[in-house]
Design a protein around this nucleic acid. Sequence first.
DNA 1: GCAGTTAACTGATCTATATCATGGAAGCTG
DNA 2: CAGCTTCCATGATATAGATCAGTTAACTGC
Lengths: 249, 249
Amino acid sequence: MNKRRKSPIQMISTEEHHCSIDLRLKILGRLPFFTDLNQTQLKAINQRFNSLGFTKDEYIYFSGDTSERMFVVAEGKIKLFQPGFEKRNVLLNILLEGDLFGNLTVFGSSTYTDTAQSLTSSCILSISSQSFGEILEEYPSLAIKSLQVMEKRLIAANKRVFEISTLPVEQRIVVTLLTLGEKLGKKTDQGVLIDAPISREDLAEMTAATPESVSRVMKQFQNNGIIDSGRLWVSILDLAVLRKLVEIE
Amino acid sequence: MNKRRKSPIQMISTEEHHCSIDLRLKILGRLPFFTDLNQTQLKAINQRFNSLGFTKDEYIYFSGDTSERMFVVAEGKIKLFQPGFEKRNVLLNILLEGDLFGNLTVFGSSTYTDTAQSLTSSCILSISSQSFGEILEEYPSLAIKSLQVMEKRLIAANKRVFEISTLPVEQRIVVTLLTLGEKLGKKTDQGVLIDAPISREDLAEMTAATPESVSRVMKQFQNNGIIDSGRLWVSILDLAVLRKLVEIE
DNA sequence: GCAGTTAACTGATCTATATCATGGAAGCTG
DNA sequence: CAGCTTCCATGATATAGATCAGTTAACTGC
């Protein structure tokens, strides 16, 4: 078996990013939201965004803070979680370039219900909820698109409730790895590398399990050659076998 | 202890409902969606809705059906769930008068991800996703309102993931009872009656537990005088104590 | 390259909750 | 109201996974 114990993940430097205007325009143009707009409209909207750099592990906002901004990941990986008592957090989502977070609903709830933390160094664009509201009013198609983003997340959240409720730990880990592979996977000569620094504890917080249980299951998968994994990284070697582990039985 | 073993719940007849135009207008006018519209606009929109009656236990749609309609509960209680293998369902939500369900996103996913079943006899209004889309395009404020509905549900779903992941069965049952009381509670001389036919199995499907475990916990709560409960009904006698059971500890 | 730190592994034990099995009560039906 | 069906209660037993504790391996910074 390949004994590659060094992490294959690009952790980018811990230096702060600075997001250029160019990068901002490119990111905004790529968003499903804004694909219908022309360059002029895009530039006008771009004016209303701020950009901010974050270092690894830095917090963007905390659960309970008054929520007055909508954020877009321009570069880096962001983790959203609900903090629990004494380290018992629940990891809700890992976001990458182009993903929206924060207050998407203009006049919805008044405080953030989750905490956002930068997993790598990152560049984040943000806009005040008020400005965002004005944009939505102006372009109704954008509101419908945000509805679709919300729906996707609601369906994902319900799927997760279902999985936690009905599957044993091993299968919960499998579906989580598959989802992560789908979203963050980079094809390499060593299989599908999950391109974000994910710890056993992170996986535990995603699967409603303990780090120890995750460790045991992951080790077993490694021994079977289904995955390869080390400190803060995971690579899926055999997708087919992994998928089979959760098929109807 | 009060030994009221007869069900206090109004089960309405198992006859089909028929929704009058009057009822339809009243329901639509009450929706957070449509509160901004005047009578003429409301009447125009009302035209585009169908109404349909369902008997107790009847299905409105199944998970996997192609989703081309948005629904509104006009009368009765609807349960949404994800069907699992061999009776291991997961109950997602219980809806009452005024609640929306089905395809809220116009051009989102193409099949329903849950199954909708009438808990009582009920009257349901529905509109094609296309018509609904046209309405949203016409009134951007409505799209923003649906965004808020979606956000509320997403937050609730995430809260549930958190609870299932971090709380023991007893506390999961408590938070579920509190939520049900909040949403479906009717103040009576016998405490807050949860005004829907909820079985131990339903509660189990809401709390990721087994009916047996639910039964044991509920019995214990009855012995402590916190709740009263019988076949297909639950009443909360002591809200304060119930709340205390899930406070930080 | 070495010391210190954090993450991952692994064995032993414990426990909350599932499972299995049975009996009993509430409501419904003719 | 007798008989049937469905829901609920409850005891005995089993077990997945948590907890506790100690070791090992990878990365970080001087």
